[in-house]
Every structure is written in structure tokens, then in C-alpha cells.
Design a protein around this nucleic acid. Structure first.
Lengths: 182, 182
DNA sequence: GCAAAAATGGAGTTGACAATCCAGAAAATG
DNA sequence: CATTTTCTGGATTGTCAACTCCATTTTTGC
């Protein structure tokens, strides 16, 4: 569903890939819609888990930069094919499946809060000015990431992603406390 | 197709909406794929045209801010339903229809160049530091816009869009020449 | 005006896909 | 061990959507 879209993936395709019969699938999932909701949950969990090691420690400029670099490197490996698994689902399902939309919103919320936690730690530690708003900074970073991934997917070039992430990093840097680096 | 997605819109739906018969549609478009490509071109042209008045004069901080505010106001009117018409198509079609992808990439390119032209004018005029890179700034702004629209669509709240656009504005501001305001 | 070409309406064909059904196998329960 | 419940395979059904066909109308070129 990530590769061909939700609408472009038939239940039969899923059967083949999972090597199960129709009755089995429909035993565990009432209808395709339910299967899709499970895919949403799975992708959210999967993306957050994969990023967990870096995401849970975004409490320094260095860690943030390492995280950004890892994302760019990943898209490079993939030759810029496919954007963000969550973003793709979000775009396809938001207006079509209310339940999927809320699930994806919750996923983004968790993602944002991971980033926010790191930024708050930096602010509390004094690395960031008290004026820095962790929520808005995290939202900006996440938006830059999502938009950068989309443009990068369309252009088949990591340039936009790098520009967007650098911008977000620069923005956070602009709240760096003068005395304390890192 | 903007409301229900490309896959969720049948040729019959288009027939009804356009009040034409099947043979007529298939006379002008060989297959649904061709119709979709026409929709891509149309949406790109439509979005750029709608923004033309503001977009063609993005050569001051004030103009940029007015443009951003207009975008937020528009999403507000729409109650955050539906993201960017170009972005939605991009996400759905990029991996599925190579020709659509290139068309969308070209559309983004034109969009970015409009922004870039304004920024370059600002730099040439001395409002921005010579160090400001109009291309990267424009890319960052566009990514923030796209990501902000996506998050806003999923959350049904303009907060993320505002955070993203404010971030991009702040980033451009950080290249403001010290003497010259605006 | 008239023939050729383009455009149109609408029924019809085909294929794909979501969802069902039932018969049989395995597991759980007592 | 018997019986009830859960699970599984595979064929089937019904619907819907992409696309085709052909008869008829309108437009074009001379």
C-alpha cells in the first residue's frame, strides 16, 4: 500500500503477499476498510520505532543535525522513491476515511511530541532561549520534513529536503542561548 | 478528483459532472490516464493563476507576509478540508504515473521560481544579504507550505500551517540586511 | 448544397475486485 | 473422547468501473 497506494492495492494483492486465503483475511478483518486502518496503525508504529533511537534523544543541536542527516541519507538510498509512509497515507485518506485521519493525526502528534520533548529539554537546560516555543518549533520542523519529503519525491532529488531541514535547523539555532552552545 | 482522489473518481462521475456521454469523453481523452494528466495540468495552472496577483510581487517582507496570511485564511475558510491540490495529486500519482510526476515537478518548479524571483529582487535591491540564496530560501518556503498544509489537513487546525509559514518567514528575515528594512 | 469528417448519445462488453459461502481441518473445552 | 468453537481453503457472486461500438447528428470543406 505504501508502494502502490491504498486504492491501488487490492485485497487479493494482500492475500498473495501474505500467502493467505480470502476467508482468512476476512476472518480477521471485517472489510478492506478495517485492513486499511490496521495498516495506518502499523505504519505509524513502524516509522516511529525506526526513528526511536535518534528521535528519543533530540536534545542537542548535534543530535538534531544527526537525525536530519539520517533522514536525507535514507531518502538518498531509496533514490527518492516514495515519500513519508505516514504522509502518503495522510494525503490519500484524510478526506476519505475519518477514522484513518484521526489515527494519522494521533501519529503525527506522537512524532511531534518526541521532537518537542528534546527541544524542551534544551530550553530547560538553557541551550535555548526561554522565548523558544518547543511546540511551534517542533511543528515547524515536522512540516518542513513532510513538505521536504514530498518535494523530494516529486523531483527525485534530495535538494528540497535538505533545504527544508536546514531551514528548520537554522530556525531552531536562532533561539540558541548566547552563552551555551549545543 | 481533488475531493475524492483520482482513484476515487470514476470516469462516470466525470461524465455526470460535465454532463457529457461516455463516447464524448473517450473521444477527447484516449483513456482515464490521459484525463488525469489533463487534470494535473489544469490544477497546476489553476493554483498558480489564483495566486498570481500576490505571487508575482513577493519582493518585500510585507508582500511575503500578506501572501502567507492569505493562504492561512483560505485554509481557514475551507475548514482545513483538502490540502494543496497540487500536493494531493503529487502524493497520489508520483509513484504511479511517471508522466504525471514530471508535470507536477514542473508545476512546483514554476511555483518555486515565482517565489525565487521575488527573493532575488529583494537581494538585488539590498533588502537581503548577498549571502541569501534565493533558490534555497524559496525551496524552504515551499516545503514549509506543503508540509504545513498536509499537517493542517490531517489535524483540521491551521496551527501547523501557521507555525511552518512563520518559521519560513523568520528564516528569510534572518537574511535581512541590517540597514534596509522591507 | 453535398459529401466527408468530426462529434455525440447511450447501450453493451469485459474484467477486476470486494465480499460471501460452505465444507473441511484444527483447537479449545469439558 | 466428544462436541463445540475457531480457523482455513477455494470457489462463487454481485457490483462497479473502464472502455467499446454503432447508429445518429452536427460541422466542415468545396
Amino acid at each position: 500500500m505504501f508502494e502502490r497506494g491504498v486504492a491501488g492495492t487490492s485485497v487479493e494483492d494482500v492475500q498473495r503477499a501474505a500467502k493467505v486465503s480470502a476467508s482468512q483475511l476476512y476472518h480477521y478483518f471485517k472489510e478492506k476498510r478495517e485492513l486499511v486502518l490496521a495498516v495506518v496503525d502499523h505504519q505509524v508504529a513502524s516509522v516511529l520505532e525506526a526513528q526511536q533511537p535518534l528521535l528519543s534523544r533530540l536534545d542537542s543541536f548535534e543530535a538534531l543535525q544527526t537525525w536530519c542527516d539520517a533522514i536525507v541519507a535514507l531518502q538518498d538510498e531509496r533514490q527518492c522513491r516514495g515519500g513519508c509512509p505516514i504522509g502518503s497515507l495522510a494525503s490519500e485518506l484524510s478526506e476519505l476515511e475519518p477514522e484513518a485521519r484521526t489515527g494519522l493525526a494521533a501519529g503525527y502528534m506522537r512524532w511531534e511530541q518526541s521532537i518537542r520533548a528534546g527541544l524542551r529539554a534544551m530550553r530547560d537546560r538553557g541551550a535555548l532561549t526561554p522565548a523558544a516555543d518547543p511546540e511551534r518549533l517542533a511543528l515547524g520542523m515536522l512540516a518542513a520534513l513532510q513538505g521536504g519529503l514530498l518535494l523530494t519525491q516529486v523531483r527525485r532529488d534530495t535538494g528540497p529536503l535538505r533545504a527544508a531541514l536546514d531551514m528548520a535547523m537554522g530556525h531552531i539555532h536562532s533561539f540558541a542561548a548566547s552563552g551555551e552552545p549545543g
